[in-house]
Amino acid sequence: MNIFRFLGDMTHLISILILLLKIYATKSCSGISLKTQELYALVFLTRYLDLFTDFISVYNTVMKLVFIASSLAIVWCMRNHPLVRRSYDKQLDTFRHYFLLLASFLLALLLHEKFAFQEVLWAFSIYLEAVAILPQLVLLQRSGNVDNLTGQYVFFLGAYRALYIFNWIYRYFIDPHFTRWIACVSGLVQTALYADFFYYYFISWKNNAKLQLPA
């Protein structure tokens, strides 16, 4: 494992911890899209089916279990916790995420490494992860103001994707057998979706001002 991959995993973990901290400390999930969180839970559940079939390393297994458990916990809190669910911006979270599910599934049926149950679901999880942030970005754009922890959450999530690209570039040169085109192309698309957010994030950071997205 190279340093980019490791830092990518760590920023992914940090983003989830920031989200859990926000929900736990403020008992609020305002600014957070339940649809994006549900899509992520589905991404992890469909991608990590290999927990039952392949053992890669203790690190790999533990991280997978942490991602599954934390995403399910976040969805549960947003749906069922008496205080947290009241703060959910349901009227702003209107992105039609079923289209993302359907499109990702159809694409996975067409483009996969092998036509097998686990392989198709793996491709589905890669395509779905690439677009799962969209309901979250739309919600932030609609609400305009982004609270500090929510802004940090999205920033670290984007940083994770960017670091994975560096990881692939590194692997491309170090490991000539590394060909994972589905993941690499989807990863590029996914990272590109953050470009706009990153732009406004750095402006607010440079001006030491609160993060605001244009309407």
Binding site: D9, D54, A116, Y164, R180
Partner: peptide, 10 residues
């Protein structure tokens, strides 16, 4: 890494 081999990334 074979194309449909073990996927070591998360």
């Amino acid at each position: 890494t074979e194309p449909s081999g073990v996927k070591d990334e998360l």
